[in-house]
């Protein structure tokens, strides 16, 4: 088992003929992901990725023709909200939005519409997710993964790769690795994913990678203390970040009132019995100490 995506996932890519979309779709195909369709308005009837994937004008048509049950969005920020709404309108149950820089007020409306429709949204501004050896949806490099007992959830991109690589190097494989995104308004939060890992029989241990800003890590810590009995390890980025400055990710800002610091998150996690690593490279050892692998 795993969560969210697997070998049965029938993936649609919105923006498949764009530069980013084409590049990453090729990598997804090579990983073994079952890409059944692409959507680029005006290019319906063509084939993408060297003729391997049919392109449709609309998501509705793509779903009707191919039975796609997940979509990965690579369209530019100005069009991403509409792309997410189009996917929801066609009743695609899983929407993964990689696009960075979506205006927050647009996301507010998209979030609530998708929630009402019961659509699971990952992102935006996220690297996507990979179920090791089965399906890769998004931009996480495929070769860093190996199958094993650890589920990973993170707000970051390359930092996630860093931790996955460290685990793979240490012989600790993964079930699913989920990048939930660095924006203030995202579709799926830590608790949603932690809950899925907690219920997934194959996932024996969980790694959580947080960063400064907001209170999601603190809430996740409370959830873990209450619900999760699987071994866990965590890392929080941004101990040296100055207050009041946005550290790249739109959501990574320590409020001038002092909320959202790395220390506050670390304390909350430790109080929930979760060990927090000083460096991403220490995570495999913390898992081993907790009896994993």
């Amino acid at each position: 088992m795993s969560i969210l995506v697997n070998a049965d996932t029938r993936l649609l890519v919105q923006g498949i003929t764009g530069r980013e979309g084409e590049f990453h779709s090729t990598a997804m195909l090579e990983y073994g992901t079952n890409i059944v369709a692409g959507v680029t308005p005006g290019k319906g009837g063509q084939n993408a990725l060297d003729g391997r994937v049919p392109v449709y004008d609309t998501v509705a048509e793509a779903v009707e023709q191919t039975g796609a049950n997940a979509t990965c969005i690579f369209v530019p920020a100005a069009f991403a909200p509409d792309a997410m709404l189009e996917a929801a309108d066609a009743n695609v149950p899983l929407v993964v939005c990689i696009t960075e820089g979506v205006p927050a007020l647009d996301m507010l409306r998209v979030y609530h519409v998708l929630k009402q429709k019961g659509v699971r949204l990952i992102g935006p501004n996220c690297p996507g997710l990979t179920t090791a050896g089965e399906a890769k949806v998004g931009i996480i490099p495929g070769d860093i993964h190996t199958r094993g007992p650890v589920g990973l959830v993170s707000r970051s991109g390359t930092l996630t790769y860093e931790v996955v690589q460290a685990m793979t190097d240490a012989g600790l494989g993964q079930t699913t690795c989920v990048g939930i995104g660095g924006d203030p308004i995202i579709g799926t939060n830590f608790i949603d994913v932690l809950d899925m890992f907690n219920q997934d029989p194959e996932t024996e241990a969980i790694v959580m990678i947080g960063e400064i800003g907001g209170e999601e890590e603190e809430k996740a810590a409370a959830f873990c203390a209450r619900e999760v009995r699987k071994p866990m390890a965590a890392f929080i980025a941004g101990r040296t970040a100055p207050p009041g400055r946005r550290m790249g990710h739109a959501g990574a800002i320590i409020s001038s009132g002092g909320g959202g610091t790395a220390e506050s998150k670390r304390t909350a996690l430790e109080e929930a019995g979760i060990r927090v690593a000083d460096s991403p490279s220490h995570i495999p050892q913390l898992l081993r100490d907790a009896g994993v692998g």
Binding site: T158, L159, A237, G238, M247, G248
Partner: peptide, 11 residues
Amino acid sequence: NGAGLAMTTMD
């Protein structure tokens, strides 16, 4: 490259 990794590098 990457905001989270950039913060981690500083840390």
